[in-house]
């Protein structure tokens, strides 16, 4: 992912608009997800954590629109998405199975002024908590944090079923260092040689692998609706203020 000088705090963010996008790369991200690189000549760039809407139009004129998080605070002109297939979905099976380099898409964005991280806003640490494909906007925040050399302490807790289900594994591992710590929870199966527990996250494990409330972190939680609501409730029970917890739900079962 390439670095981009992000807009200074308080600067007007790019206005949302419809853009014509051309797919330039499709690669498998996980067994059920693809990473899409889009060439969007009119794209103004986006804040870390923002999303866009993809609109598909069938030959009979029927349209379906879905929101997808942008995987990086990308420079103008390029957008990277990582799309997980929703069984029986209207849009994601087309994106994950049928889309090829050279195909055209209509995208609307950049969108979202709430679930975004802006470098340099203050020196409070940042705790990210992701479930499955919910890591996409949080990866964008971690990448922007790394690219801007922002000194804020970041920590990401990432819950995945199995090692092969993790998005951006190599990129996240490469970002780790003194100002970015990565903790992975495996709920079904762990990599070979894994010494930690395997199983669903509980409140104790959440407390052990996140920045304590006494350090007053800003928290961003993204995943399925059930995951986000469980985590947000536990975080409040652990002493974090509701106003410090920003959430984004992608639905799911």
């Amino acid at each position: 992912m390439s670095a981009q000088p992000l807009a200074p705090p308080g600067a007007a963010r790019p206005r949302a608009a419809w853009h014509a996008a051309t797919v330039t790369d499709v690669r498998r991200e996980t067994p059920t997800a693809v990473r899409l690189t889009l060439d969007v000549p009119t794209w103004p760039g986006s804040e870390a954590g923002a999303h866009l809407d993809v609109r598909l139009t069938a030959p009979d004129g029927y349209q379906a629109t879905r929101s997808y998080s942008i995987a990086s605070a990308t420079p103008g002109g390029v957008v990277v998405l990582a799309v997980d297939e929703v069984p029986d979905g209207e849009v994601s099976p087309f994106l994950t199975r049928e889309l090829r380099s050279g195909d055209q898409l209509e995208v609307h964005g950049p969108l979202g002024a709430f679930f975004v991280w802006r470098p340099g806003q203050d020196d409070r640490p940042v705790q990210l908590v992701a479930g499955g494909s919910g890591v996409v906007p949080l990866y964008a925040m971690a990448a922007a944090h790394g690219a801007t050399g922002d000194g804020t302490f970041f920590r990401l807790l990432y819950s995945v079923r199995r090692p092969e289900d993790a998005f951006f594994s190599d990129e996240l591992a490469a970002l780790t260092g003194p100002s970015f710590e990565l903790d992975v929870v495996y709920t079904r199966a762990a990599p070979e040689g894994w010494a930690g527990p395997v199983g669903r996250l509980d409140k104790g494990a959440l407390a052990a692998a996140t920045i304590p409330a006494s350090h007053r972190p800003r928290l961003y939680v993204c995943g399925s609706t059930r995951f986000v609501e469980t985590i947000a409730t536990w975080l409040q029970e652990l002493g974090h203020a509701a106003a410090d917890i920003r959430t984004e739900r992608f639905g799911g079962l």
Binding site: A16, T65, S67, L111, G112, A113, R249, F250, G251
Partner: peptide, 23 residues
Amino acid sequence: SSHLDGNALAGALSDVFQGDVTA
């Protein structure tokens, strides 16, 4: 699928309001 949250309104509301009102 279960519900989403108001982040998903940004696209539909940007056609109506100036700027992003989800925050």
